[in-house]
Design a binder for these strands. Structure first.
Length: 427
RNA sequence: GGAGAGAUGGCUGAGCGGUUGAAAGCGCCUGACUCGAAAUCAGGUAGAGGGUUUGCGCCCUCUCGUGGGUUCAAAUCCCACUCUCUCCGCCA
């Protein structure tokens, strides 16, 4: 959430900023209204409580002197009932105050360009040589089905549309990719590996900004009120919810593999074929907790860590900078690495790297104590490094051969028992 | 699932109806000593909300797992819930 003081002091600025994200500026007016009412009531109630406290102490003293206190008691009782009334009203205001605050999106970083939606994102970088095929490159789902390493039909049978089954070397390649990515980020980029729970409580979902606004996008278990992990960002960022870290601990860098579960509620008809958009996929995610003044530097590093995976796998990619309208609810600035897909001659999102600044830290109450004793909110960042399923798709397409086999990228071979190629025979 | 024990500040841990927002220790900060450091000594050190002040600050309220209740008054008594630990049961 935003700093309430920023909204109070510069409401017009905040309105303007959230409108760039296509959010409703009337949220700010509602906030200010509730804020005023709440403050008045707090003031009044605090005065009453003060009175109760003083008189109660008085009673204690008189009682010690064995004096009559029945009159005083009656007075305090009256005050107490008034307090109770106020508290009921106050808790309603507090709830609304909090709810509005939780529904106001983060404001964009000044360096982010204005744009209405994804069509106005800009490509800021391109890397790698797109391969010159001497045959018509097939889409990944055809390659995979021909090799019998992905089974869409049976995925649908077991679970439904947008689920698939990995088989044989397909399953092994998935595992290889996960290990390869984690090892890279740990050994070369200095992250600590985390393996978090996949079922997550409500408080954590609020902490990183999935709730209250996006409940429809998540799988939920009714009996226990738990959500299926939509991204490791949630459990890993919430690792330090309600904690005060020490300045010496920062920066903290975590990398985690998790399965990710998404209902894709609004995605009917999009990317229906293949493994690009599915309900369950694997992802390796990097998360950083950093000092505010260093967070932009950390975004650059994080982004480079994600790109490094693509470079090492020699997958051509481009980097897209998101415009204000496509930042999403929580990000202040965001870059998406996109991998080249030969069958469509298009670049497809394979990672997303964001700086949330103090937006998540305020929600999740993650602070650090500076050397001088003062308290500050940390800045949080995260980025996929990378989405595993999409990496698999990219490898299948970019490394496919005319005979239908797929060459295994050199750096992955040690994770595949030295295997160099997936063929119909060995798959 | 059953039985029991517990949850207090950055950490450990005392308090079990009325100057207790909380002893003590650790940690941290400041000062003295030192060329410097360590050790020692002295002092300081919870968070949130609100008011006031140009500012340093000062004042008020709330918070001892969470939510309710009893009482003039609750960290302290009662109830519910959550979590942790121990034992039993079940189980990959």
């Amino acid at each position: 959430m935003l700093d309430p003081n920023l909204i109070r002091e510069k409401p017009d600025f905040v309105k303007e900023q959230i409108q760039k994200k296509n959010a409703d500026p009337s949220l700010i007016d509602r906030f200010l209204e509730v804020d005023v009412k709440r403050k008045e009531l707090v003031k009044e109630t605090d005065m009453l409580r003060h009175e109760r406290k003083t008189l109660s102490q008085e009673i204690g003293k008189l009682l010690a002197q064995k004096k009559d206190v029945s009159e005083l008691k009656a007075r305090v009782k009256e005050i107490a009932s008034k307090i109770k009334e106020n508290e009921k009203m106050l808790s309603r205001f507090e709830e609304e105050y909090r709810d509005i605050l939780l529904r106001i999106p983060n404001i964009p970083d000044p360096s982010v360009h204005y744009g209405k939606d994804e069509s106005e994102n800009i490509v800021v970088k391109r890397w790698g040589d797109v391969r010159d095929f001497d045959f018509e490159p097939k889409p990944h789902w055809e390659i995979a089905e021909n090799l019998d390493i992905i089974d869409f039909k049976r995925g649908a049978k077991i679970s439904g549309a947008r689920f698939y089954v990995l088989k044989g070397l397909g399953a092994k390649l998935e595992r290889a990719l996960i290990s390869f990515m984690i090892d890279l980020h740990v050994a070369k980029h200095g992250y600590r590996e985390i393996f978090p729970p996949f079922l997550i409580n409500r408080a954590s979902m609020i902490g990183t900004g999935q709730l209250p606004k996006f409940e429809e996008d998540m799988y939920h278990t009714d009996k226990d009120d738990l959500f299926l992990d939509p991204t490791a960002e949630v459990p890993v960022t919430n690792l330090h919810r309600d904690e005060i870290l020490s300045e010496d601990d920062l920066p903290i860098k975590y990398v985690a593999y998790t399965a990710c579960f998404r209902r894709e509620a609004g995605a009917a008809g999009r990317d229906t074929r293949g493994i690009i958009r599915v309900h369950q996929f694997n992802k390796v995610e990097m998360v950083r907790f950093v000092k505010p003044e260093e967070s932009m530097k950390h975004l650059e590093e994080l982004l480079d860590n994600a790109e490094d995976v693509l470079r090492i796998l020699n997958l051509p990619y481009q980097l897209k900078k998101m415009c204000t309208g496509d930042l999403g609810f929580t990000a202040a600035i965001k870059f998406d690495p996109e991998v080249y897909m030969p069958s469509q001659d298009k670049y497809v999102e394979i990672s997303s790297c964001s700086n949330f600044k103090d937006f998540q830290a305020r929600r999740a109450n993650i602070r650090y104590r500076a050397k001088d004793g003062s308290l500050h909110y940390v800045h949080t960042l995260n980025g996929s490094g990378l989405a595993v399923g999409r990496t698999m798709a990219a490898i299948l397409e970019n490394y496919q051969e005319k005979d239908g086999s797929v060459v295994i990228p050199e750096p992955l071979r040690e994770y595949m028992g030295g295997l160099e190629r997936i063929t119909k025979e060995n798959a």
